[in-house]
Write a protein that binds this DNA or RNA. Structure first.
Length: 414
DNA sequence: TCTGGGGTCCTAGGACCC
DNA sequence: TCTGGGGTCCTAGGACCC
């Protein structure tokens, strides 16, 4: 499009583990697994480099990690800590350059185009940022520099751990060619297999096929893929300007039971709590949602989603719950054991469809009650209050289990 | 190996309207 | 009551990312 860009991709090293080490320096240098306890249902959120030596990696079931590395220290995740550190990281980045976009809690893109007079050549700027990050957050990061988001991201991955790598302009194809196709962001297991079937295993192999061939096989995505082989931000999110902050498209919460259940009362109680969490987030963001979705995963892992889109948008727990419960009652195969429940809202609109006037007063009072409840939760924690009424099994659920998946509730840290 | 939770984007089909 | 095509909205599922 325009002239050559200079993009930084800043990626924090073993972020969750590093944050935990700040809180407990005793973890430093040891095999650490963040995400839960060794016998729990769940997967690894992050593993220290020492644990990775044993083959432990993120997304692996905790029990598998425990088998591979029995001496590992298992730590529950602390989302609030990560968010807090993420904000510090963001602070360092924005002080450095105005065009910053957090891509997730632990990585960001910076558009450094035209900043040479201020920061010097890219490599100097990156080293300076790298040092600042360490001194101000005590966290290590890796920085990739490239003419596109894609190349910057691939470079930061190659720079790990704790390094800086500049992909020299014009040399992108040379850098990418020897990589596995799987190393391209967006190519997962499934796409990798399809590509392998065509004899494409390295990024360089993509160049042997023309764009229209790839488009025929993979549609729109195939075209983008052809461009990525050359290091271009072809299509989709990658193509967008850095820092064009986008409004959220959906809000969701879900919960996996430690043991499968077929207890309707327990499940409806869980749904109520999930709706409360979702409603709260809507109110915080000042959003109203029209589409309300239930997610149901059975014991055998078959998963369904069922949605409704009433004409009037809402941000009220009770209204969300009413719809979600109706979907649950309609679609849950009675007696079947359930592993996971989820609630998602989407199709956001800025404000209420004014609804009918008679309802207006009631809604207002509900909104005031909910705002008060939100304040209580701020003060005393998520489990302190529920507007659920007459929910059999609800009390038991909330004392014996942790239906909202809050960290650190089951095992108080000493 | 028995598989989290929070998201985004894409596809495909059906309903409905013109 | 034979038939086309486009546009939009909605639903469901799936790939993928951190």
């Amino acid at each position: 499009m325009s002239a050559r860009r200079t993009i930084f991709h800043v990626d924090m090293d073993a972020f969750f583990v590093s944050v935990e080490e700040l809180f407990d320096p005793g973890l430093i240098g040891k095999p650490v697994v963040v995400g839960g306890q060794r016998h729990e249902r769940g997967v690894v959120s992050a593993a220290s480099y020492e644990a990775r030596k044993f083959g432990v990696h993120s997304a692996m079931p905790l029990r598998t990690a425990a088998k591979l590395c029995p001496q590992a220290i298992f730590v529950n995740g602390h989302p609030a800590r990560y968010r807090e550190c993420s904000e510090k990281v963001y602070g360092v980045l924005t002080a450095f350059s105005p065009l910053v976009e957090m891509a997730s809690v632990d990585e960001a893109y910076l558009d450094m185009t035209g900043t040479e007079r201020l920061h010097g050549p890219p490599l100097c700027a990156a080293h300076s940022l790298h040092g600042k990050m360490k001194s101000e957050t005590r966290l290590n990061c890796s920085i990739g520099i490239g003419a596109s988001r894609l190349v910057a991201k691939v470079s930061s991955a190659k720079a790990k751990p704790n390094g800086v790598l500049w992909a020299v302009p014009g040399e992108e194809a040379k850098l990418l060619a020897p990589l596995d196709v799987r190393d391209i962001p967006g190519v997962g297991k499934v796409t990798e297999q399809s590509l392998l079937a065509l004899g494409i295993s390295k990024v360089g192999d993509l160049a042997r096929f023309n764009d229209s061939f790839l488009e025929q096989h993979f549609g729109k995505w195939g075209l983008a893929l052809a461009g990525k082989g050359r290091g271009e931000d072809a299509g989709g999110w990658f193509d967008s300007a850095v820092g064009a902050d986008s409004a959220p498209k959906s809000i969701s919460h879900e919960h996996t039971y430690n043991e499968d259940t077929a207890d309707a009362g327990q499940m409806e109680s869980t749904l109520m709590r999930l709706c409360e969490m979702v409603g709260r987030r809507l109110r915080e963001a000042g959003l109203h949602a029209r589409t309300l979705q239930l997610k149901l995963r059975y014991k055998d892992f078959t998963t369904i989603t069922r949605a409704r889109t009433p004409p009037a948008p809402t941000q009220l727990d009770t209204e969300i719950f009413q719809q979600v419960r109706a979907l649950f009652r309609k679609h849950w195969h009675q007696g079947a054991e359930v592993r996971l429940l989820g609630v998602q809202v989407s199709s956001f609109e800025a404000a209420d469809g004014q609804g009918d006037l008679l309802e207006g007063d009631r809604r207002l009072r509900w909104q005031q009650a909910l705002a008060a409840a939100d304040r209580l939760r701020d003060k005393f924690g998520e489990s302190s209050i529920s507007l659920a009424t007459g929910m059999k099994g609800g009390f038991r659920e909330r004392t014996h289990e942790n239906p909202v998946g809050l960290p650190g509730k089951s095992k108080p840290q000493g």
